[in-house]
């Protein structure tokens, strides 16, 4: 279990570019650093339930992010609070300290401009640059393989 107050980083991973998926981790948080507010309980993994596959029960956390850095706009002090499943979270010992800045690409690389009105695409967006390298410690387990990042 990740204790409240722990700094975590959301995996900068884009499974939707590799296969058909159902993901509950918003794209705008991939690679971003936040802080665990509390453990919300354990739930069957919706990424499996959506395809009627056997679903592992996973810890779900409320994770708090500073809002202005997400879009490079907004009011200092404002926050975004999001439910995130444990396999999507990385701890410091998994390589946060050595990671490059999360703001490594422009927003326009991350989303599809659906209407030209600046509306980000939904979670099934595929606007991910090619050649993307997932940061983190070498040999870090791939979420697609089902290995847990945490004990």
């Amino acid at each position: 279990m990740i204790p409240p107050g722990t700094t975590v980083r959301v995996r900068d991973d884009w499974p939707e570019t590799r296969e058909k998926v159902h993901i509950r981790t918003p794209h705008y948080l991939r690679g971003r650093t936040g802080r665990v507010l509390r453990h919300l309980g354990n739930f069957p993994n919706p990424e499996d339930l959506a395809f009627a596959r056997p679903a592992r029960t996973l810890p779900l956390y409320h994770v708090l992010f500073d809002q202005p850095p997400l879009w490079e706009e907004g009011s200092p002090g404002d926050e975004v609070l999001v439910e995130i499943y444990e396999p999507w979270l990385m701890l410091e010992r998994d390589g946060i300290a050595d990671a490059p800045p999360s703001r490594s690409r422009s927003l326009s690389d991350r989303v599809i401009q659906t209407s030209g009105a600046g509306v980000p695409a939904n979670s099934f967006a595929v606007g991910v640059p090619s050649g993307q390298v997932r940061w983190g410690a070498p040999g870090f387990p791939d979420p697609a393989s089902g290995h847990h990042a945490l004990p």
Binding site: L60, G74, D78
Partner: peptide, 29 residues
Amino acid sequence: VRDPRGLIAEWGTTLPPATKIRVVDSTAD
């Protein structure tokens, strides 16, 4: 998530500057 203060201003809602906004993105269970 991107411009919460601008959004609620369109509803006629203005918060004191010292009040911070916490946007709760309901993503899961």
